[in-house]
């Protein structure tokens, strides 16, 4: 299985079909996370993402390895953006291709859910009115 794992400044979703396309893949599934303009009823202007890059890449490799054992995949991609991202910009992209749709659907769900849980990346929200908050749950 060919895979691509990256932490990059800009994600380009327009090339994703080419990246995941494979002669043996009848199904391609992609999830893209983007910057939303409202969080908890507050207007958001931008997000800022910071990564512990070396560790984040290692964790993403582990997630990709687990997914490729669990499902029959021909291609896999995981990308996360860092830096400031404006409304509607893509910040995370995961995708997989497989012979049949079930494998790539389930793999994508696992890739994004596990990335959000384990990969050391943090987001700061820039609210209208200049307040800045690291998204960190407090008890």
């Amino acid at each position: 299985m060919k895979k691509k794992i990256e932490i990059i400044a800009h994600i380009d979703p327009s090339v994703i079909y080419k990246e995941l396309s494979h002669p043996g893949s009848g199904g391609i599934c992609v999830f893209i996370g983007a910057v939303r303009d409202i969080t908890q009823n507050q207007k958001v202007n931008a997000l800022f993402f910071e990564a512990y890059e070396t560790m984040a890449l290692k964790e993403m490799e582990k997630i990709a390895a687990t997914a490729s054992k669990q499902w029959n995949l021909n291609r896999l991609i995981m990308q996360h953006a860092v830096g400031e991202k404006k409304i509607e910009e893509p910040v995370v992209l995961v995708g997989a291709s497989s012979a049949h749709r079930n494998d790539c659907f389930e793999a994508c769900r696992f890739l994004i859910d596990t990335l959000k849980e384990k990969v050391p990346i943090w987001k700061k929200e820039f609210f209208e009115g200049k307040e800045q908050v690291w998204v960190t749950p407090h008890p």
């Binding site: 512990y52 995370v92 990335l115 690291w134 998204v135 960190t136």
Partner: peptide, 29 residues
């Protein structure tokens, strides 16, 4: 806490030779 780029258990030994990082709750994606 991450030690040498891996999540560490509470019992794990550390020294100044390790790369140690504090990992607050992650919020990627």
């Amino acid at each position: 806490i991450a030690v040498d780029e891996e999540y560490a258990s509470d019992e794990q030994q550390i020294s100044a030779d390790n790369e140690i990082a504090i990992i607050p709750p992650v919020s990627g994606g």
